[in-house]
């Protein structure tokens, strides 16, 4: 474990806590894409299949349980909670996320480190995570009013993967034959998808304005 990875995990943890806090306290999910949340729940379900069979550390297991629990409870809140679901903007959250799942699954079947069920599902979760933010970014472009918490959520979600890239660089130089192109490329693509969001987020922070993305 290195500082970049710990910072990345904490940033990721913080992003889901910010979102859960927003939904749980103000009972609103305005501006949040249910499709992205569903994709993330699928990402964690596919990635943590071996949570009980392959023990790595207490930290690893606890964090996996937190990510699984938080992503599924966010989906539950947005789908079934009688107050929260009313603030879900389903007319705007129209990204056909099923069109993301199949290509990622096919790609995982073609390009993976080992052709086993667990490994293909793990690779699928990497590819899916890289594009999971798209419905949320599309929704942000559409809804003019990006409230602070949603903006912070997306920012933290992007920052965590950027920190993971630093972690991979660090591990590449400190651990012999630590080479995982699949992880690196999908992590890089994921972070690049946030590039314009980061730009506008930084601009709004610098000019102390409300965050708004160009149409």
């Amino acid at each position: 474990m290195n500082i970049f990875r710990l910072a990345g995990d904490m940033t990721h943890l913080f992003s889901v806590l910010v979102l859960l806090l927003k939904i749980h306290t103000i009972k609103s999910c305005a501006g949040v894409s249910l499709k992205t949340q569903e994709l993330y729940a699928l990402v964690f379900a596919a990635r943590y299949l071996d949570i009980f069979t392959n023990y790595i550390s207490l930290y690893n297991t606890v964090m996996k349980l937190i990510f699984l629990g938080s992503s599924f409870s966010i989906v539950w809140y947005m789908r079934y909670h009688k107050i929260v679901r009313r603030s879900y903007d389903k007319d705007q959250d129209t990204f056909r996320h099923y069109f993301l799942i199949l290509p990622c699954l096919l790609l995982a079947l073609l390009i993976n480190e080992k052709f086993t069920f667990k490994e293909v599902m793990w690779t699928f979760s990497l590819y899916l995570e890289a594009v999971a933010i798209l419905p949320q970014l599309v929704l942000l472009q559409r809804t003019r009013n990006i409230d602070n918490l949603t903006g912070q959520y997306v920012f933290l979600l992007g920052a965590y993967r950027a920190l993971y890239i630093l972690n991979w660089v660090y591990r590449y130089f400190t651990e012999p034959h630590f080479v995982h192109w699949i992880t690196w490329v999908s992590g890089l693509v994921q972070t690049l998808l946030y590039a314009d969001f980061f730009y506008y987020y930084f601009q709004s922070w610098k000019n102390n304005q409300k965050l708004h993305l160009p149409a």
Partner: peptide
Amino acid sequence: DEQPKSHDEL
């Protein structure tokens, strides 16, 4: 089977 190292990440 020895889990490849990369899967020690979240």
